[in-house]
Amino acid sequence: MRQVIQNLEESRIREVANAGMGRSDVLAFWFGESDEVTPEFIRQAAIDSLQRGETFYSHNLGLPELREEIATYMSTRHGPIGVDRVAVTSGGVNALMLAMQQLVDAGDEVVAITPVWPNLTAQPAIMGGRVKCVALSPVSGVWTLDMDALLAAVTDSTKLLIINAPNNPTGWTLTRDEQQRILRHCRRTGTWLLADEVYERLYYEPTPNGCAPSFLDVAAPDDRLVVVHSFSKSFLMTGWRLGWLVMPSSMTHHMGKLIEFNTSCASVFTQRAGVVALQRTDEVTPQVVAHLKLCRDTLIPLLQSIPGVQVAPAKGGMYAFFRLAGFDDALATAKRLVVEAGLGLAPGDAFAPEAAGWLRWCFASKDPQRLVQGVDRLKQWLAK
């Protein structure tokens, strides 16, 4: 067995969740998904596909109909994006791993901005890359980027820069000016940029296109830019495992070869559901975003009212990332909260060492009262 695989750390989020799974008395907010079911008309599209007997392989790059819908959907928000730049994947995680496999050789230097979802630093390590992290810094609960530190870290020796914004877990989001500076710098150094933008629609600031700033808004079609998207968050489709990549057209054919050696293709009935989700996005995503904003605005003031809590409302994503004064071991704290308070949160050190004293609370709850109940449990536990 490869040593790098043996050295991989197990998910600390799972470590906490495993301690509480199956317990009906635990309010679980540890995973990054809503507890709302996928809309009926999306589910029905998959059922109809299965009833038609669509149980066979599809094109490596995805159904032509779905790739067309993705290109249209992305072009509406970010300017012209051709079908020849789109590949359908079996989830956002698969999209990220495919990008790593195509771009990272053993020994390559990879820079990542942290705290971040652990897959984004584990995946290049699996490929043998040397991962160098640039940490965001919290100021009164708001995580910010030291742009000079990032640009100094990305040199001619850097093969790939990985950025997740809006960010899981902090909610940090890049500005348009910051994206332009980063892109210009990567052009000078010849560095590839992998942008995980799966939370772009889950953005709570007013924008003309209803999205967080995207690198696609400022990049040329042939820039060394790969953007990852997923149906999971914005369409309430986490379990469907369907995502996509946008890349330079010169890369797409080779991505198809790589998909063949990974999953061959996404399942057809799942892709049919994706087609309908995109065609009727205005019936899903705006309501999802409005409800998540309600959840955020319910949870954050309650947390801010607790003495010793440091937290700020996230501009994007679906998480409250907060610090409890006096509880510096987040993993131990999260485990205690499960056992002693019936409250399931994710430990900050799952996302980076610099977030060891922080906790992540996914506020994507169908019933905002669950968030109120969760805060009550946290208060009662702290009072003890």
Score class of each variant (00 low, 15 high):
residue 1 M to V: 06
residue 6 Q to Y: 05
residue 10 E to F: 10
residue 18 N to L: 07
residue 24 S to I: 12
residue 24 S to F: 14
residue 29 F to T: 01
residue 30 W to M: 02
residue 36 E to A: 07
residue 37 V to D: 15
residue 41 F to S: 00
residue 42 I to P: 05
residue 42 I to E: 08
residue 42 I to G: 01
residue 43 R to G: 05
residue 44 Q to I: 02
residue 49 S to A: 12
residue 53 G to V: 08
residue 58 S to M: 02
residue 60 N to M: 01
residue 63 L to Q: 02
residue 64 P to V: 00
residue 65 E to Q: 13
residue 66 L to V: 04
residue 67 R to L: 09
residue 71 A to W: 06
residue 82 G to H: 10
residue 83 V to Q: 02
residue 85 R to I: 00
residue 87 A to R: 05
residue 94 N to L: 00
residue 96 L to C: 13
residue 98 L to A: 01
residue 98 L to W: 00
residue 101 Q to W: 04
residue 105 D to Y: 10
residue 108 D to E: 05
residue 109 E to R: 06
residue 117 W to E: 08
residue 117 W to D: 11
residue 125 A to S: 10
residue 129 G to H: 08
residue 135 A to I: 02
residue 136 L to P: 14
residue 148 D to E: 14
residue 148 D to I: 04
residue 155 T to F: 05
residue 178 E to P: 03
residue 181 R to N: 13
residue 185 H to Y: 13
residue 187 R to S: 12
residue 189 T to P: 00
residue 191 T to G: 00
residue 193 L to R: 01
residue 194 L to K: 07
residue 196 D to T: 05
residue 198 V to K: 06
residue 201 R to M: 14
residue 206 P to A: 14
residue 208 P to H: 06
residue 212 A to G: 09
residue 220 A to P: 00
residue 220 A to T: 04
residue 221 P to E: 03
residue 221 P to Q: 03
residue 236 L to S: 11
residue 240 W to G: 12
residue 245 L to W: 15
residue 252 T to D: 07
residue 253 H to D: 13
residue 255 M to D: 04
residue 267 S to M: 13
residue 269 F to L: 00
residue 271 Q to H: 04
residue 277 A to F: 10
residue 282 D to M: 03
residue 288 V to A: 11
residue 288 V to M: 02
residue 292 L to G: 03
residue 295 C to V: 05
residue 306 I to S: 00
residue 314 A to F: 12
residue 314 A to C: 14
residue 315 K to R: 12
residue 325 A to F: 12
residue 326 G to V: 14
residue 331 L to Y: 09
residue 340 E to V: 02
residue 342 G to I: 02
residue 343 L to Y: 02
residue 350 A to Q: 09
residue 358 W to C: 07
residue 361 W to N: 03
residue 378 L to R: 00
residue 384 K to A: 03
